[in-house]
Design a protein around this nucleic acid. Structure first.
Lengths: 168, 168
DNA sequence: AGGCTTTAGTTGTTGCTACAACTGAACCCT
DNA sequence: AGGGTTCAGTTGTAGCAACAACTAAAGCCT
């Protein structure tokens, strides 16, 4: 490890970082809390179902689903198994590639997504969107975009949505 | 549950939220990764040590430490026990209130914080601060401030830092 | 065709967090 | 002073995530 001069954070940088760290600590728990309470779903499970619900045929290969949700394959495998046990998802072998497995949303899974989406959106509004001015929302988009270029340069996660946000 | 019209997110709001959600998912893992690799500490353990290192006498009561780190008391209790087993922290009963327990950073704990801070700061720079323009850093501070008013209205977490950021 | 490497996914183990139950000290009230 | 309530913290249990090891199919190479 090369010993180099540490560039400490300036007052302004520290203020921004400390607040961001607090948000990082608090927000996921709140989202989880609402979903567990109202839909008996973890935040991660909700996103898995949401990704499936927007996919063609409501079906995705495990690998693709893992990329979109930033999950490792083992993690996804466990989660999908539990969702399958609850009847929200079903798995079946891929016709083209016998190594691959497809996950598909069941009718009940679809219903679950429909029912839980409004509450989830309301929470996102309450805790994030409605706390900001429209100008700040635009700024937040630019800022998170910049961060994602560092965090996820290949755009595994964000590409999923770019379809919706930026059809151009 | 009152059935009310769902206010869905606009295109711009969705774009901002989706990116923020991705950051929420990716950033904590990266911070954890660096600290585990270079200092054998979780992000949360690091913050516990950091809070202690800035406290008078490098000592805090468990309850106060829990508030500053957004931990429940049981969670903190487990974490401090492990840190104590590693010799980074020591616990002793509070003289004023026999119900209370103080946690104090040991010399080795202090050394650990000193050694791991530069690497942590470098990571924060790399993934966050240096990805943004100075203007964006200022915007991020305002935005996260607004979010924290919803997430943490009493300022349990953020008050800790306000001393440093905004001495006024 | 036979064998090596890569890819896709599952299964098993360990560690941490959330939740609940518990102990004991402090406070309050008459 | 005595009895009930609140407060501070610990301990025990259950569930999820990270990591490692494993199985099986596909691709490649000669």
């Amino acid at each position: 490890m090369l010993a180099m001069e540490t560039r400490w954070l300036t007052r302004e940088e520290l203020a921004a970082w400390v607040r961001l760290a607090a948000v990082l600590e608090l927000l996921p728990g709140r989202l989880d809390q609402q979903l567990r309470r109202d839909a008996e779903l973890t935040n991660f499970e909700y996103y898995v179902l949401a990704m499936l619900s927007e996919a063609p045929e409501r079906t995705l290969r495990m690998t693709g689903l893992a990329a979109q949700t930033n999950a490792t394959l083992p993690r996804l495998s466990h989660v999908v198994r539990r969702l399958e046990e609850r009847g929200l998802v079903e798995r079946f072998p891929c016709a083209d590639d016998a190594r691959a497995t497809n996950a598909r949303l069941t009718a009940e899974g679809w219903r679950t997504v429909q029912e839980s989406a409004p509450g989830h959106v309301a929470t996102v509004r309450e805790l994030v969107v409605d706390a900001l001015t429209p100008e700040q929302v635009a700024q937040l988009k630019e800022i998170t975009d910049a961060l994602l270029q560092r965090l996820d340069p290949t755009g595994r996660m964000s590409d999923v949505y770019r379809r919706h946000d930026e059809p151009a």
